[in-house]
C-alpha cells in the first residue's frame, strides 16, 4: 500500500516526464507530431506492396463491416504492435538514459519507464485516431466499438508496461538485453499474424495435423502468443465491427494484469540497487 501511495503521489512528475518525452521528441522539426504517422505509413506501404500485391495475402472480408482493404486490415494489427515495440524499446533504455538523474536525485524510479509508456501511448492514441477516421471513410461503423477499443488499449498498455519494467531492470545489469530484445521483437512480430492473416497458418496447420503425434496443432501454438490475442480482438472491433470473442478478450486481460503485476514486483525489488548498479 505504501508503495502505491508513493507512486500516486508522483503522478505529477509522471505527467511532466511524459510531456518532456512528447515535447522533446519532435521539437524543432517542421512536421512535428505528424512524424509519428510517418513510420506506420511507410510500413503500411511496404507491407501492402510485398504481402498483398506480390504474395497475394488475402485476409477475410470484414464481417459484418464488409471492408476489404488490406492496408486498413494491416494497420488494425500493426499500430498496436508498433506501440508495443516502441514502448518496450524506450522503456527498456529509460533507466540508462536517465542514469544521471537516478544517481543524483531521489524520486520514485518507476516513473521513468512508465513515462515512456505514457509517451508512446500518446503517439499511439494519435495514430489510432487517424486510423478510426480512415476506417470510417472506408465504410466501417467503428464508433459504437470505441469504448471497448479504449479498454483494450489500456490492457495492451499494461501488458507493455509490465514487460518494459522487467526489461528496464534487466538492462541495468546486462546491457546486452537491449540487443537481444531488438532481435527477439523482430522474431515475435513475424510469429504474430500481423502482416499475414491467421488463415494462411490455418492452411498449413491443417496440412500438418497434430504436432509430434499429439492433437496440438500449429494454430494452437500460434494462439498461445498474447499478441495474437490482442491483434485478433483489435481487428474484431475495428475492422469487423463486432463483439470480440469473450475468451480471447479474457486472455488479453489476464496477460495484461499478469505482466503488469510481475513487472511492478520485479522493479520494486530492484529499485534500491539501481543507482549503484548504473
Amino acid at each position: 500500500m505504501g508503495y502505491i501511495n508513493e507512486v500516486i503521489s508522483s503522478r505529477e512528475l509522471l505527467v511532466n516526464l511524459t510531456m518532456r518525452e512528447v515535447k522533446g521528441k519532435y521539437k524543432r522539426t517542421v512536421f512535428g507530431q505528424l512524424w509519428s504517422l510517418a513510420n506506420p505509413l511507410a510500413a503500411m506501404l511496404i507491407y501492402t506492396f510485398v504481402f498483398a500485391f506480390i504474395f497475394k495475402a488475402h485476409p477475410d472480408r470484414g464481417n459484418p463491416s464488409g471492408l476489404d482493404v488490406f492496408a486498413l486490415w494491416l494497420l488494425c494489427g500493426l499500430l498496436p504492435w508498433t506501440f508495443l515495440a516502441t514502448t518496450i524499446n524506450a522503456g527498456l533504455g529509460s533507466l540508462i538514459a536517465n542514469a544521471g538523474l537516478v544517481q543524483k536525485v531521489y524520486f520514485s524510479r518507476i516513473v521513468l519507464p512508465l513515462s515512456n509508456v505514457a509517451a508512446s501511448g500518446y503517439n499511439w492514441l494519435f495514430e489510432m485516431g487517424v486510423l478510426v477516421v480512415a476506417l470510417s471513410i472506408a465504410g466501417a461503423f467503428v464508433l459504437p466499438w470505441l469504448p471497448l477499443v479504449v479498454v483494450l488499449m489500456v490492457l495492451l498498455a499494461l501488458f507493455a508496461a509490465g514487460i518494459a519494467l522487467m526489461l528496464a531492470v534487466a538492462n541495468v545489469y546486462f546491457r546486452d538485453t537491449q540487443n537481444f530484445v531488438g532481435i527477439l521483437l523482430q522474431i515475435w512480430m513475424y510469429l504474430t499474424p500481423i502482416i499475414y492473416p491467421l488463415n494462411l497458418v490455418q492452411d498449413q496447420s491443417d496440412r500438418i495435423g497434430g504436432l509430434f503425434g499429439t492433437s496440438i496443432t500449429l494454430v494452437d501454438v500460434f494462439r498461445l502468443n498474447p499478441m495474437e490475442n490482442f491483434v485478433d480482438v483489435f481487428r474484431q472491433l475495428l475492422y469487423d465491427n463486432r463483439w470480440p470473442n469473450a475468451s480471447t478478450f479474457l486472455v488479453c486481460t489476464l496477460w495484461a494484469f499478469g505482466s503488469f503485476i510481475v513487472g511492478v514486483w520485479v522493479f520494486r525489488r530492484n529499485e534500491k540497487n539501481l543507482a549503484e548498479a548504473l
Partner: peptide
C-alpha cells in the same frame, strides 16, 4: 532535500 548536482533532469530542447 539534496543538491548533488544542479540541473539534473533538465531537457536541452525545452
Amino acid at each position: 532535500a539534496a543538491l548533488l548536482e544542479v540541473g539534473s533532469g533538465f531537457h536541452h530542447e525545452l
